[in-house]
Design a protein around this nucleic acid. Sequence first.
DNA 1: TTGTAGGCGTTATCAG
DNA 2: CTGATAACGCCTACAA
Lengths: 359, 359
Amino acid sequence: MRQSRSGPKTDTSQGRAAASDRRSVGLREVARVAGVSTATVSRAMNNPEIVSADLRARIDAAVQQLGWVPDGAARALSTRRSQTIGAVFPALSIGEFARATHAIQSELARLGYTLLLACSEYDPAQELSQVRKFVERGVDGLILVGQAHHPDTERLLHQRKIPYVNTFVYDRSQPGTCVGPDNHRALQMMTDHLADLGHVRFAAIAQSTLNNDRAGARLEGMRHALALRGLAARPQHVLIGKWTIGEGRALFRKLMQTDPRPTAIICGNAHLTVGAVLEALAMGLRLPDDVSIVGYDDIEVMSHLPVPVTTVRVPGDRIGATAARLLVSRLENKPFSEPLEAEAEIVIRSSSGPPPKDS
Amino acid sequence: MRQSRSGPKTDTSQGRAAASDRRSVGLREVARVAGVSTATVSRAMNNPEIVSADLRARIDAAVQQLGWVPDGAARALSTRRSQTIGAVFPALSIGEFARATHAIQSELARLGYTLLLACSEYDPAQELSQVRKFVERGVDGLILVGQAHHPDTERLLHQRKIPYVNTFVYDRSQPGTCVGPDNHRALQMMTDHLADLGHVRFAAIAQSTLNNDRAGARLEGMRHALALRGLAARPQHVLIGKWTIGEGRALFRKLMQTDPRPTAIICGNAHLTVGAVLEALAMGLRLPDDVSIVGYDDIEVMSHLPVPVTTVRVPGDRIGATAARLLVSRLENKPFSEPLEAEAEIVIRSSSGPPPKDS
DNA sequence: TTGTAGGCGTTATCAG
DNA sequence: CTGATAACGCCTACAA
């Protein structure tokens, strides 16, 4: 029928590399060695059960002998699937994200996917450009952090129909799209804990909420909980800075120089928390007698500091693993029924207690 | 000439999806819209300067209008280059590796490459399988940790001619292949520091050296430095465990129950160090008066603990960035002249001092 | 169950 | 400088 089967295959050898010159093992060589067609080899690799046992054996032997490794690019081109997932995190060396990265990676590996990783440095424009690059690289899906993305990011993903999941946030109005804690509620709970102990003068040491909807939601959660009791943190008691231990120390010290002093201090991330606690100890303050400090993210050191720290536990690894599974089930059109909200848990330790009597 | 230009293109439409049905924008549609050939579009994208200005403009307009994004898989298939680098780390949530990952990622992004990340969990077999998967995915190069790999890993990489660099090690006998500190020497220096202060009874709290050549080299460095002075750590003073803070505490406590007690304790990683220091403080010991503790990896908390910790600084970020640049220059056949040894620096703080008088 | 051959979207060669 | 077209290596619809 088709009039095509004309020349090319007969090797006129003028391409960039004549087929006959190619020494690199390909499906073709395997097929030849095994004495079968390329289609059969392909099937033997992808659906072993539909190939007769003896052929399968011959093929496996040939594969072994030639040390053939399938070519992902060719497969991706043909199937329009790369078995690759991209993840863009604001930072990689922050505990919660590092744990999540690890969990995502191992979960994806288990499911036959590979992880492409990038970092946005808390900048939506960078996030966009990383996402763009991932799209060009042909990722099947994406894992992002937070809900606030560059409009073009959402547009691009929508138009290319690339599924993605937002992590470290939970928004019940967007079911099935995000995996994480309800940041607002987490801090509301933490604030309630302190208020229930009798605190009235609250302070916050937080990282910038610029381009960080999670941090913003947490601050709002605190504000909301306080407002419900007719309270509010004084402006000079709400300090924003970088997310380092040193910054935590500096901001804590600054807080202690105000008058009146706050009696309860809520920190916005693990580094700031560790800094605040260590500075308090360095200043000779007793926790929680002189002041209560609570943190965010239950990294291991929280329970080992001289005064174990009350903190919000964020199951970064569970979030990552769940996000990975969710994304893959969506890609493979499988149902998914695990809970997506990582209920934030308040871990109460010794750094929080009733406010000092004389305050 | 070529007798080929026969049928297929004339659309007999019997493939899985007839060319005419494909609505997805490709180079072809762009070419059609711009009224040029696909070759010209391709050139306009990759070598703009060799295409006349007006065509370039028309092409850019068409690209814009269609929202075309080049297909990485197709490009990879055609060029045999994926612009992708794979990195396999033993763990991702350890400070030094997290920092390195970050640095690698941003350096690669700058150079036009994308990072594929995986984790070996300190298991050569897992490393091998991750490397295999990366090879299938078509990475252009690899970044690994340490020098000890599964023999098949090296074989595979060698036979596929895939360049790779070993990080966090420095071996002067393998020039150009590894980037990192000389672990042996680092610990030798640290041990010398303590010995010079007068210590004689040394102890080590380390992670398993199984499948961890860096940790092994560090332990050897200590042994060697001691041997040069005719000293050695007693067997009961060399404790091996997991790399957590809790473990560091437990092992330190165990050490303090021996008789005689060691006066200088060398920890094998950051977590163990923090644990040991915090346990010492919890036990009411004074550092360095009662005992000296030194660590490995100068993470931020080291300088902020109640007693700032003497430690080895490992510039994970510099190592990562250098490794990335080295690998890319090799891929692009460019010369590379930056130093590959990340000279380990001993940061002396208050946790180390002369041994107690009465010892 | 197995073989045949076209097509996935780009690049690059070669001829104008 | 531009156009035509053969690979790139694999998958899969279709035929046998």
